[in-house]
Measured scan of single mutants.
Amino acid sequence: EQYVVVANYQKQESSEISLSVGQVVDIIEKNESGWWFVSTAEEQGWVPATCLEGQ
């Protein structure tokens, strides 16, 4: 499942990744806490779901 990044995010923990507007990410896991585990071409990590929008 692919989502587009709609807000920049700077990682704050080692388990997170930074996002840039316009990036496309694959969703691996959706957590009810509002944090999703995603994959980019370069890395995987947790990001806030509020930064993502379905395609």
Rank of each mutant, 00 (worst) to 15 (best):
G22D: 06
Q10P: 06
S20A: 09
P48I: 00
L52T: 00
A7H: 04
I27T: 08
E43T: 13
K30M: 11
S33R: 12
A7C: 06
V24Y: 06
E29R: 15
E13A: 04
V21M: 11
T40F: 14
V47D: 00
D26I: 03
S18R: 02
G54F: 09
L19M: 03
E32F: 09
W36L: 07
P48E: 03
V25I: 05
A7G: 10
Q12K: 14
S18D: 03
C51A: 10
I28F: 07
T40K: 12
W36K: 01
Q44A: 08
Q12M: 08
E43F: 06
F37K: 15
S20Y: 09
W35T: 07
I17A: 07
Q12C: 07
V38N: 01
Y9E: 02
S14G: 11
L19N: 00
W36T: 06
V5I: 04
V47P: 00
Q12D: 06
L19D: 01
P48C: 02
E43Q: 15
I17L: 12
W46Y: 12
S18L: 06
S14E: 15
I27V: 15
S15F: 06
W35G: 04
P48S: 03
E16F: 01
V38G: 04
E32G: 13
Q2L: 07
I27Y: 08
Q23V: 05
E13L: 08
S18G: 15
G54D: 09
S39F: 06
Q44C: 07
V38I: 05
Q12E: 07
L52H: 01
S33C: 06
E53G: 13
S39P: 01
L19K: 00
E42P: 04
Q23I: 05
S39Y: 05
Y3G: 14
W46A: 02
V24R: 09
V25R: 00
E13T: 10
N8R: 13
V5C: 10
T50H: 05
S39W: 04
L52D: 00
E29Q: 15
V47M: 03
S15I: 07
K11Y: 03
G45C: 01
A49C: 14
D26S: 10
V21Y: 04
Y9R: 07
S20R: 11
V6Q: 07
N31D: 10
S15P: 10
W46G: 00
K11H: 15
Q44L: 05
Q2V: 14
W35H: 14
T40P: 02
T40L: 13
Q55L: 09
K30I: 06
I17F: 02
E1T: 07
K30N: 04
Q12W: 04
I28C: 09
D26Q: 12
A49R: 09
V4H: 05
Y3T: 12
W36Q: 02
V47H: 00
T50K: 15
K11V: 04
A7W: 05
I28K: 13
I27K: 02
E16N: 07
G54L: 15
E53I: 05
W36D: 04
V47T: 03
V25L: 04
I27D: 00
V21H: 05
Q23A: 05
V24L: 09
V38Y: 00
L19R: 00
S33D: 15
Q2H: 08
L19C: 13
Y9S: 03
V4R: 15
E16D: 07
I27W: 03
I28A: 05
S14D: 13
T50A: 12
E1K: 14
G45V: 02
Q55E: 05
W46I: 05
W36M: 07
L52R: 01
K30G: 04
T50F: 05
I27H: 01
E16S: 08
W36N: 04
Q55D: 13
A41T: 14
N8I: 03
T40W: 04
Q10G: 05
S20I: 09
E42W: 10
E42Y: 08
E53P: 02
W36I: 09
